[in-house]
């Protein structure tokens, strides 16, 4: 039997928009998986050169707020600078998030997400770690 990976994401059913279940052993990995899942839904492909780096600092009410703000910041950089990221170093406290994101110019994008929503958003503790479901407005 195949072992379920300790972190990952999968698309789940939604009538009009997109929804993504994300799981990980800890919060920084959950944030990274959520970003990778969002890019996968959009069909983002990143050019190998030039590599770029961005420092992202976010303040929020709680972990859910930080997650939504982080992903929305990635969408903003995607639209205004045509950049996407594949490597993240996260430092998270209750009310702030510091992320060093590395990536490059977007080579291909199938369909852009308009926004990341708070719809029924809750980061839950599971026996394996953490899990959440994100809904995206497309």
């Amino acid at each position: 039997m195949n072992e379920i990976p300790s972190s990952g994401f999968e698309e789940i059913r939604h009538t009009a928009d997109w929804a993504l279940r994300v799981w990980a052993s800890d919060l920084p990995t959950l944030f990274t998986q959520a970003a990778q899942g969002m890019y996968r839904l959009e069909g983002v492909e990143i050019a190998s050169t030039p590599r770029v780096e961005r420092q992202i600092t976010i303040k929020g009410e709680d972990a859910e707020s930080l997650l939504v703000a982080f992903l929305n910041e990635l969408l903003y950089l995607q639209e205004t600078e045509q950049l996407a990221f594949d490597t993240f170093q996260c430092a998270i406290t209750n009310h702030s998030l510091e992320i060093k994101a590395q990536g490059g110019p977007i080579r291909h994008l199938n369909k852009a997400i308009k926004a990341v929503t708070f719809h029924n958003l809750s980061i839950r503790t599971t026996p394996q770690g953490l899990e959440t479901t994100l809904t995206f407005d497309v």
């Binding site: 929020g60 703000a69 929305n72 903003y76 708070f118």
Partner: peptide, 15 residues
């Protein structure tokens, strides 16, 4: 994107 960002900003701020 103008409207999307305005809604995004206020949904975040009104938390």
């Amino acid at each position: 994107g103008f409207g999307h960002q305005i809604c995004t900003d206020y949904v975040q701020d009104l938390q």
